[in-house]
Design a protein around this nucleic acid. Structure first.
Lengths: 149, 149
DNA sequence: GTTGACCTTGGAGTAGACTCTAAGGTTTAT
DNA sequence: ATAAACCTTAGAGTCTACTCCAAGGTCAAC
């Protein structure tokens, strides 16, 4: 049996975060003490641990809500229900990675094309690219490498 | 000379977005017509194109503000000023990718460990992992592969 | 009997990038 | 004359995941 501050400290989070999770239906204390303080059971603590592990692998609170709803009556649910959630997230994460890798590629081209020296930026290839390239196509820069100052 | 709707349409964005950019100091029309309508010049349109290209390579509006401030008086600025912004962003993007790749790895382990079949989720390895693994360490799952239903 | 550390509530603020609404003015076409 | 399609403003709402605040109640120690 833990009070909010204890439970928070144990898990390295803020008590406000626990109140926030309660407000959003992720984790409610199973009891209140006479003075109105929240009282968390060992089960509550395990549910919190579940939430934090799910967060650690990238799930959003909305997705965690979905996972929890499967978890609480898992005898009525099947493996594919769970795996679908994971695979769905896996796809979203992969898409985000792909987008960021496109960014990284373009940024690398921009960076590679620029001397980074201390002469005037008037002919800086980075600015020129942003001023006049075809949107999101900086492949020109790949060819024209620019001597250092 | 373009009105807000025209310029927005040309660039495939919302007129509200242009007003938003104006409010946040990224792009103000260089004139107003007698009736108070915003009037964008060709230069304004080019500045918008700059903004959109920068967005396309992943820069946030705050970072674009910085790039624009370099761009407008580039004769006083040097190549390294520009390259620093790009390299800084490159690092941030790479860090974000690394985080997402950790997520992807963990999610893949979870997915691989689960049969995804139609039997009860009571012994689902994914739920078990989220219930009881060491936080953010799902490497156990790598070993124990689970036969399909 | 008061200090300090806890707890309660409702509600506001943060960041980022829009997006929408309300209430109204202008222009163009029919 | 009027409808449709534009434009104006200020301000609110959206999403995510907290984080902080004010005003007050509770409890243990000294």
């Amino acid at each position: 049996m833990f009070r909010i501050g204890e439970l928070a400290k144990q898990h390295g989070i803020n008590a406000d975060t626990l109140r926030f999770y309660e407000k959003h239906g992720l984790l409610a204390p199973s009891a209140r003490s006479d003075n109105g303080y929240r009282v968390y059971s060992r089960d509550d603590a395990q549910r919190l641990a579940f939430i934090l592990r799910a967060k650690a692998v990238g799930f959003s609170l909305g997705e965690i809500t979905e996972l929890l709803s499967i978890e609480v009556n898992k005898s009525q649910r099947v493996c594919s229900d769970v795996k679908d959630v994971v695979d769905d997230k896996l796809m979203k994460v992969s898409e985000k990675i792909a987008e960021l890798e496109r960014f990284r590629f373009s940024l690398q081209l921009l960076s590679d094309g620029c001397c980074g020296g201390s002469h005037s930026a008037e002919h800086c290839t980075i600015l020129q690219a942003l001023e006049s390239c075809e949107p999101a196509d900086f492949s020109q820069l790949a060819a024209e490498t620019h001597a250092d100052s």
